[in-house]
């Protein structure tokens, strides 16, 4: 953490009058605290916990995606997550074998080489054939489930929420015995971004199942911003659709919004430690734009307390 602190403070010229002010112990301590909290993964980062990242709308193949991927690799250096959940629109434009290299394998090569496993869901810009791409680990299925530690992950295809998929969701959630149930898919059930907003028809179909079977957290993309929604019927919803695309200034926060960030690309780092799920949203420049902890609900339908810790960035709306 100290290098980051020095990097910020040291460039102030020795002769500058400001130096005397900045280096007074009180101010220096305040700056240090802010920099430490804003720049570094502040999750508990305990050994043996489940650590994963969440990103959506990433596959542009342009400079911004590569910058974001570099930041993810940096975070991985201090916060060794071994799973990335992909929230759809994994690839924009062409989706030839060369595009898979340019828009996925190259930017995330450091993570792939470190053994990080990506588990994708598909969005409206993805080709259906992506389900067969080995590194997306979808097993040829539009929707699928898997377990990591004490967490049951359920990846859905929100493009085509047919009867068969709904029945599968219900049986999967009903039978899941893990302590945490996490669902993720492309189109958000709640969103206050101006461009798209919530997919209300999906909410009408899915939310009753999520409530009935005790889903804890839902991650989505589609809107190219970050938003944390206040718990809805006991469930936490995150929109994280800006790991490659950004719609700057597109947020229109409402009373549903717990926090949001629409000034730069971002992704989420998440850690599940027993009954707590810590989350930290990190921008392309490495700034923490939102962070907190979710306490697992004890039974389906129970109301969960608000996230403990709020954001540290002025762009975050409370």
């Amino acid at each position: 953490m100290m290098p980051a602190f020095r990097c910020i403070v040291d460039p102030i010229p020795v002769s500058s009058p400001a130096r005397r002010l900045y280096l007074t112990p009180l101010v220096a301590a305040a700056i240090a605290s802010a920099v430490l909290l804003a720049q570094a993964p502040a999750l508990p980062n305990r050994p043996g916990t489940l650590k994963f990242a969440a990103m959506g709308d990433n596959g542009t193949g342009d400079r911004a995606q590569y910058d974001m991927a570099e930041q993810m690799a940096k975070v991985h250096g201090t916060f060794p997550f071994d799973l990335v959940i992909m929230l759809g629109d994994n690839m924009y434009g062409g989706q030839s074998p060369a595009d898979y290299v340019k828009k996925f394998e190259q930017p995330y090569a450091p993570l792939l080489n470190a053994g990080v496993k990506f588990q994708a869901s598909i969005g409206n810009h993805d080709r259906p054939e992506q389900v067969n791409y080995r590194l997306y680990n979808m097993g040829g299925q539009r929707y699928y489930t898997y377990t990591r530690a004490n967490v049951r992950f359920v990846a859905l295809d929100s493009n085509l929420m047919d009867k068969k998929q709904l029945e599968w969701v219900e049986s999967t959630l009903r039978d899941a015995r893990e302590e945490w149930k996490v669902c993720y898919f492309h189109h958000p059930l709640y969103s206050n971004a101006e461009r798209h907003g919530a997919s209300v028809e999906l909410r009408v179909l899915l939310e009753p199942l999520f409530v009935k079977y005790g889903v804890n957290v839902v991650f989505s993309g589609h809107d190219h911003v970050y938003e944390r929604i206040k718990p809805q019927k006991g469930i936490y919803y995150f929109v994280s659709g800006s790991a490659g695309q950004l719609r700057k200034g597109n947020m229109a926060p409402t009373e549903e919004t717990a926090a949001s960030f629409d000034q730069d690309l971002s992704f989420m780092a998440v850690e599940v430690a027993g009954a707590d799920m810590f989350f930290q949203t990190i921008s392309r420049t490495g700034k923490t734009v939102d962070a907190g902890v979710i306490h697992r609900q004890l039974k389906p339908g129970a109301t969960m307390p608000e996230a403990d810790r709020a954001s540290l960035d002025p762009h975050v709306h409370q």
Binding site: N159, L160, D162, Q165, S199, E201, L202
Partner: peptide, 10 residues
């Protein structure tokens, strides 16, 4: 053809 969702809406 299409169940409720983004594609049917579009």
């Amino acid at each position: 053809l299409l169940p409720p969702g983004q594609l049917r809406t579009e």
